[in-house]
Write a protein that binds this DNA or RNA. Structure first.
Lengths: 232, 232
DNA sequence: CACTATGATTGACAATTATCAAGATCGCAA
DNA sequence: TTGCGATCTTGATAATTGTCAATCATAGTG
């Protein structure tokens, strides 16, 4: 594995507290690979052979059932995915595909479990990471069950606005069909939802979004830290 | 804390591997309390002062937003809840109320975090527990996004059938209004969903359910281990 | 034994969301 | 630039789900 990737991974909260030798041991079996866009990295149901780390690009986590498909999350650099499956030595619950050209590190799951068993600080780091993941999914679940599609879109836009610096105008970070799937609706309805938000102070042109009346827009969206704050 | 409760908690996977003295230390600040039905134990947004353990009875985890409310899970003996909030020292994302008369152990969160920092085996046990919780929520999320309300009900019934021993006739374990909320629908629609499943081999009288044509019913429900198996 | 309160069901209706079928638009490559 | 393919949008329609009101069933309670 190239030195640069090694360093990037080392800086992740998950690995930063480990002893040098255990980290080296963990990296010994790991390797980095470049993938083109739209490559299926893992398939739900498969055994979890590797813990994945996205070094660059982005990855879509999705799931299918009975001919339907839905996006559950997007993984951006630098972070890991399918940690829970790796730890439990259980099959993947989600599939993963690259959204764009991506560089991914693959760390053998059995090495992760072995180090986890001997290195307490690594175990603690994993706890923190998993607790974070768990709370994120709970928030997603609340959003899905408590909000209409219009409300979900409005709050997504507010979150995206904050992520991109808080200015009135910003752009969507991925294509609308995926956004629709993430938000639990069809692309057609997403289009209509954008239209439906215009009376509350939204303008949209292609991928460019402008919140023209922040107060009114937030009055409609009713953002809530217990659903919308990534950190809380 | 009474000796019996102490023993029950000790047998939980979460605590069974701890050293005796750390377990004692953890239990020193803990106490057990009896609650009547319909008592709100915790409120979402509050700081997570205690890790809770349900010793008897049952607890509903729910959440509210903008005047709406939804049930996210039911906790039955013997298990803990709001572990993630305790670990992260973050506010509760869900509220909790007793569904019936319940006995609950309360363990100060700061003690849990303190022990977690010094006891590697406890940290590892927490990881396993959290990974399990995480995967459960992912499954719930998949169910909600990929299945219609009829399909969710059908698969819930198959899971309940398995939990209660697999016989054709069995009974619902909680009231229908809560079931509706858990499944993400209104009580009215749950009523209609039960009716809608009759052509596929279901009979229902009050709280008593009979699957009269198992093969046909499963053909409709299409259960999937990556959504419906509690263990996977 | 009524009486009451609560939950469950039903029907009528409204709102939301999905589906299908055209078009419109955009990005990209020849 | 032109043309192609994909995404996005729009309209018409259907399916699903939610809301409201009324009724029914049931379990306690006096």
């Amino acid at each position: 594995m190239p030195d640069s990737a090694f360093k990037e991974i080392r800086h992740l909260a998950l690995f930063s507290q480990m002893a040098d030798d255990t980290f080296s041991a963990l990296m010994r079996g790991a390797y980095v690979q470049n993938f083109p866009a739209q490559i299926e990295l893992i398939t739900e149901g498969d055994p979890s052979d590797f813990l994945h780390v996205v070094l660059s690009g982005s990855v879509d986590l999705f799931s299918s059932w009975n001919g339907r498909e839905t996006s559950l999350a997007t993984v951006r650099p630098i972070s890991t995915f399918i940690l829970a499956a790796t730890i439990k030595d259980a099959p993947y619950l989600m599939s993963a595909r690259t959204l764009e050209k991506s560089r991914i590190a693959l760390i053998p799951s059995q090495d992760v479990r072995a180090v986890f068993d001997i290195d307490g600080s690594f175990a603690r780091a994993i706890v923190t990471e998993l607790a974070q993941c768990y709370r994120s999914v709970i928030k997603a679940q609340k959003e899905l069950k408590l909000r209409t599609s219009l409300e979900r879109l409005a709050n997504y836009l507010l979150r995206q606005q904050r992520r991109t610096g808080g200015t009135a105008a910003f752009s969507l970070d991925y294509e609308k069909r995926r956004l629709a799937s993430v938000l639990g609706m069809t692309p057609e309805n997403l289009s209509r939802a954008f239209k439906g938000l215009e009376p509350f102070g939204l303008q949209i042109e292609g991928t460019r979004v402008t919140i023209t009346d922040q107060a009114e827009f937030e009055r409609f969206a009713k953002p809530n830290p217990l659903i919308d704050d990534a950190s809380a």
